[in-house]
Each structure stands twice: as structure tokens, then as C-alpha cells.
Amino acid sequence: MARSPPARRPLGPVPAAALRPWSTAVARTPGMAHRAEHVGRHRCRSPRPGAADTATTTCTYNPRGATPALGGRRNSTEAGQFDNAPVETRDDVIVFTSESFGESLDIIGIPHIEVSVSVDNPHADLFVRLCDVDENGMSTNFADGIRRLDPNVTAGRRQTVSLDLDPCARRIQAGHRLRLQIAGGAHPRFARNLGTGEPPEHGTTTHTTRHTIHHDDTKLTLPVEN
């Protein structure tokens, strides 16, 4: 059962410019299907007013106030499933949310995402999380993953990050929505990227990183029961 933090803030309105219709491509295999969703087709909550349009969304990661982690797979009493609403309202987290499902969807296996991203600092991480959002707005995490970007890629250059998320078996009930979070970290579950190339255990300087997500080339593929 998901555990709720003591305080919670609403997500607020979705920018009208970020609303686009669904587009679904399904490649079927015996007994299973792989459902691919382009994130630009879903509702996006921009971290800053005016930061979202039909093409890109940006957020800035600051290691001095690193994006926190709620739950997930770790050896801690803080592991597991939590209501992620407090994280999803932060300025350093990008959120995409589907429309509510008309019928239940069983996700069984390893979700995969290809994120089209550019960063203004080559020393950067990319954290991705999937959540199940119920009718009351509780956003419960069930799979995530993180990738350290290649520092040899020139700052500002667009790159595709391919990432397998946690293996999972999750039923998205009818009336629920699927939510995708994208951020520059998840501390303290994962060590902060200082943004300088220094080792995190004894680095002395930090640098912020602006992540730009290119919607149309960012694709989430879900292993769903046929």
C-alpha cells in the first residue's frame, strides 16, 4: 500500500499548449504486446509557466538542492511505494500524464524509454519514473531508472538516452492514469551529480544543469498483457 507524506499540494492546471491527442503503436508478440507512447501526445506539467510548448520542456537540476527521492528500490525503511505528489510539484521535475484509461492495463516486464534530451552541462544524470495515478490524484511509483550521460557529448547537443526501468507487474485500473517523471537526479537514493565531473564523495564545487526534453522523439514502450 502506498504511504502518503503528511503534506500534499495539487499539481495545478496543465498548460493548454501542452495538450495533444493520443497516439499509440503496438507491436504484438504471442501473449504480450509492446505498447509505445510518444510523450508529446500526453499532458505535460511544465516546471515553469511558459516553459512548455508542443516541442520541448525544460527543467534545471541544482545539486545544492538536489531533487529528492521518494521510495523505490533501496535497502532502507524509506523504500517502496509512496505518493509522489510532493516531488511532482517541484520546479526541477518534468511530468507527463496520460488521460484516464477506459479499461485496465496490465504492465508485466521491463518498461523501456528512449529520451531525446539536450543539456547545457555535459556532466549530467537523467532519472525517469513511472507512477500510477488514481481517481483521487495519488501518484504511486512502481518503476524507475537512472542514467549518467556521456560527458563527451557536447553541451547543447541533442542525444537519445535509452533506459530500461525496473522490472514490474502492475495493473493500471480503469479510471487511473499513467504518469512519467523526468528529472536530473533522485537523492539520496542515487548520489548527486555535482555537475563538474568531480567524484561525488569528495567534490568541492557544483554546477547546475538545464535539461531540455524533446517531446516527439521521446518514446515510452510498455510490456503489456495482450
Results as ranks from 00 to 15, higher is better:
Ala2Met: 03
Ala2Tyr: 03
Arg8Ser: 14
Pro15Leu: 03
Pro15Ser: 10
Ala16Val: 14
Ala17Asn: 12
Arg28Gly: 09
His38Arg: 14
His38Pro: 13
Arg41Phe: 05
Arg41His: 12
Arg48Trp: 06
Ala51Ile: 05
Thr54Leu: 08
Tyr61Gln: 14
Ala66Lys: 06
Ala69Asp: 04
Ala69Met: 05
Ala69Thr: 10
Arg74Asp: 03
Asn75Trp: 15
Thr77Ala: 14
Ala85Gln: 11
Val87Cys: 11
Thr89Lys: 09
Ile94Asn: 05
Thr97Ile: 07
Thr97Asn: 03
Ser98Glu: 01
Gly102Glu: 07
Glu103Trp: 02
Ile108Lys: 15
Glu114Cys: 15
Glu114Gln: 15
Val115Lys: 01
His123Phe: 13
Leu126Ser: 02
Val133Trp: 14
Asn136Leu: 12
Ser139Met: 14
Thr140Ala: 15
Asn141Val: 14
Ala143His: 11
Thr154Phe: 10
Gly156Thr: 00
Arg158Gly: 08
Ser162Trp: 00
Leu165Val: 02
Arg171Ser: 11
Gln173Val: 10
His176Trp: 03
Arg179Met: 09
Leu180Gln: 04
Phe190Gln: 06
Glu198Asn: 09
Pro200Gly: 14
Thr205Tyr: 05
Thr206Arg: 05
Thr209Ala: 12
Thr212Gln: 01
Thr212Val: 13
Ile213Gln: 02
Leu222Ile: 07
Leu222Lys: 02
Pro223Arg: 02
Val224Ser: 01
